[in-house]
Amino acid sequence: MKTRTIQEGGTRALVPPVPDDGQLSISSASVFYNPEMELNRDLSVASIAAFSQIMSSRRHLEMSEITYVDALSASGIRGLRIAKEVGLNVTLNDWSEEAYTLIKENAAINDLTDKVRICLGNANALLHKERYNIVDIDPFGSPTTYLDAASSSVINMLAVTATDTAPLCGAHLNSGIRKYSAVPLNVEYHSEMGLRIMLGMIARDLARHEKAMHPMFCHATRHYVRAYLEVKKGANKTDKCLKDLGFIAHCTKCTARSVHYGMAVHIPEKCELCGEETSIAGPLWLGPLHNREFCDSVLVQLTNRELGKKEYAVKIVELCRNELDIPTFYDQHLLTKKLGISAMPMEELLKELTGDGFKASRTHFSGTSFKTNAGLKEILDILRRFR
């Protein structure tokens, strides 16, 4: 297999060359490596390092005693970075013999041959058999086929990526329903919709193992969504966690929306603002997406490391840290287009909202999006002031 050498953070690796047509796909190489996911991996190193330090201080553990598994390793770059740059006890697994061989070569390049465990086999079989403090699922496409095994295996933290954003965000509705056992809507906040649909699925999978999740840092970036979840065991904790599941009623005419907590709840068929019929999304996660203190810890890790995507990573985490814990954002450009007026500077809009007694923040989802506890009518009234 032809390879080229790349450097990410403090780790070198042999990876397949970029195809001649420049189009990456799971079938374009025997071992998949996506350079566009370096940001994802930089954030992974910082987030897992931050969580591991918290675990270490709570339980008086050495970092090398904390077990981490990259169950779908491919070239091994993510897990090797965790081993070399964070210092955890790492297991790397892939079903492909070519990947297995390449991971061994990459471990040797980084002097990690005796410090990491490399497995060849089915990810689900490994996860059902063994337990790890931190389980990382980063597949090409949907993570759903691995969630039950991951939920069984995980002790303290579950990290999950999904790159099948079209099904998650409602663009491929039937596929989203099949994969995630939920109805996604392709609305202006579709990126947040996809993240919450995935989190809802994870919460339900964990619940079958009497485990609860607490989102620490979750984001939707470009073509994927990623979640870092603290996991706790216990039926009472699980029952409390499931109370953050529910549905969103969305009016496609005026874009008003309402949230409804619970798995069996009454949802009004008509929009409270304009009287049109609403569309229902869910079940999905309606709870917080971030933990502010944890995001601060991730920022410290990012600041103290040499990373290729540091500036972008810091920006994402800062936006997530300051984002209101309110389901669904509004897009100012869409609202002003409906009103037939020009958009106002985002900081000015946030100032007007807070000046009227509401909470408001930017979001990490897009530069034109914001969150607020103001209703749609109040938001539109503020925007009309500046027509």
Rank of each mutant, 00 (worst) to 15 (best):
K2V: 03
R4I: 15
R4D: 10
Q7K: 15
T11S: 14
V18D: 06
D20Y: 07
S27N: 15
S30P: 08
S30W: 05
V31G: 11
Y33I: 09
E36P: 00
M37Q: 15
R41F: 02
I48Y: 02
A49Q: 13
Q53A: 03
S56F: 00
R59M: 04
M63P: 07
A74G: 14
G76M: 05
I77G: 12
R78L: 06
V90M: 02
T91L: 04
L92S: 11
L92P: 06
D94Y: 05
D94G: 10
W95P: 00
E98V: 13
T101V: 11
A107G: 10
N110R: 02
D111C: 01
D111M: 06
R117Y: 04
R117I: 08
N122F: 06
A123T: 02
Y132K: 01
I134N: 10
I134F: 02
V135K: 14
I137S: 13
D138A: 12
F140Q: 09
S151V: 07
S152H: 15
S153E: 09
V154E: 10
I155T: 10
I155Y: 04
M157K: 01
A159T: 14
T161Y: 07
T163Q: 06
L168G: 13
C169G: 14
C169V: 05
N174K: 12
N174M: 15
S175P: 00
I177A: 11
I177F: 13
R178K: 15
V183P: 00
N186T: 00
N186L: 03
V187Y: 01
M193Y: 04
G200P: 09
M201W: 03
M201K: 15
I202E: 14
A203F: 10
L206T: 04
A207F: 06
H214L: 08
F217P: 05
F217H: 13
K233D: 14
L242T: 14
A249Y: 04
H250E: 00
K253G: 01
C254Y: 13
V265H: 04
I267H: 09
E277L: 04
S279W: 03
G282C: 02
W285M: 04
L286R: 05
N291T: 08
F294K: 05
F294P: 03
Q301H: 01
N304V: 03
N304G: 03
R305L: 13
K310N: 02
A313V: 11
K315W: 09
K315M: 10
E318P: 01
E323G: 05
T328R: 03
T328V: 02
T328Q: 12
Q332F: 08
H333P: 00
K337C: 03
G340R: 08
I341A: 10
I341E: 07
I341R: 11
M344V: 15
P345M: 02
M346S: 01
E348Y: 10
L349P: 07
K351Y: 07
K351V: 02
E352L: 15
L353N: 07
T354Q: 07
D356M: 02
F358H: 13
H364L: 01
F365W: 08
G367K: 10
K371A: 06
K371L: 05
A374F: 08
A374S: 13
I379H: 03
D381G: 11
R387Q: 12
R387Y: 02
